[in-house]
């Protein structure tokens, strides 16, 4: 009995895992959709099947790598792009990228092509609105690249469980039992 309890405690302590929900994070950079599948606080879904659908059209599919990641190139879809990860044992999760995201990326990529490659000041003939637009696109690209890891981090933190919630749930169960006992007594 003691050995079993020690084993159980060791399992609980050794595992950083908390909870059991599969989530998918997906982002778009340079017309490439990339992301990963993870269990909330419990590591990545390695070798899981994934599929990217836009409406009924399959755009890409494969299995996740050792870090639970996936990546594929995709042009702007007509319908929202849905990345579904299926661990093939009951865990299925999706991430959705709306077509509007491609518009921002296209603007950013156009900006890269249109960005000045020389440090020589532009001629006064360059119209000011065009320069401002180019600058905006460059900033957009940089921001998209820099915020991708932050978005991933927020996704993971947003799904994290809190000790107070767990304690609340246990107290709720105790409270429900109390209510049930009270109702039983009143019935008699």
């Amino acid at each position: 009995m003691i050995r079993a309890l020690v084993l159980l405690c060791a399992l609980l302590v050794a595992s950083p895992a908390f909870a059991h929900k599969l989530k998918v994070f997906a982002t778009l950079t340079d017309r490439t959709v990339s992301g990963y599948a993870f269990f909330i606080g419990g590591g990545r879904a390695q070798g899981a099947q994934w599929q990217a659908l836009s409406g009924e059209t399959v755009l890409a599919f494969g299995t996740t790598d050792d870090a639970g990641g996936f990546s594929f190139a995709a042009q702007r879809p007509q319908a929202p792009l849905v990345v579904t990860v299926d661990t093939r044992e009951g865990h299925i999760a999706q991430a959705i990228l709306p077509p509007e995201r491609w518009a921002q990326t296209a603007l950013a990529q156009d900006a890269q092509g249109a960005a000045p490659t020389s440090t020589v000041p532009q001629t006064p003939a360059t119209p000011a609105p065009a320069l401002a637009q180019s600058l905006e696109r460059i900033v957009s690209t940089a921001v998209q690249r820099e915020t991708a890891p932050l978005l991933a981090r927020i996704e993971e933190m947003d799904a994290r469980m809190r000790l107070t919630d767990i304690i609340s749930a246990l107290c709720l169960i105790a409270g429900l039992a109390g209510v049930a006992l009270w109702a039983l007594q009143r019935r008699r």
């Binding site: 908390f18 269990f39 767990i166």
Partner: peptide, 21 residues
């Protein structure tokens, strides 16, 4: 109630195993 609490708490601790946990 006790077993519901045990089930609830136990379900929150998972161990990664290949593609699943």
């Amino acid at each position: 109630a006790i077993l519901a609490a045990v089930f609830f708490a136990g379900s929150l601790v998972s161990v990664p195993m290949g593609p699943a946990s």
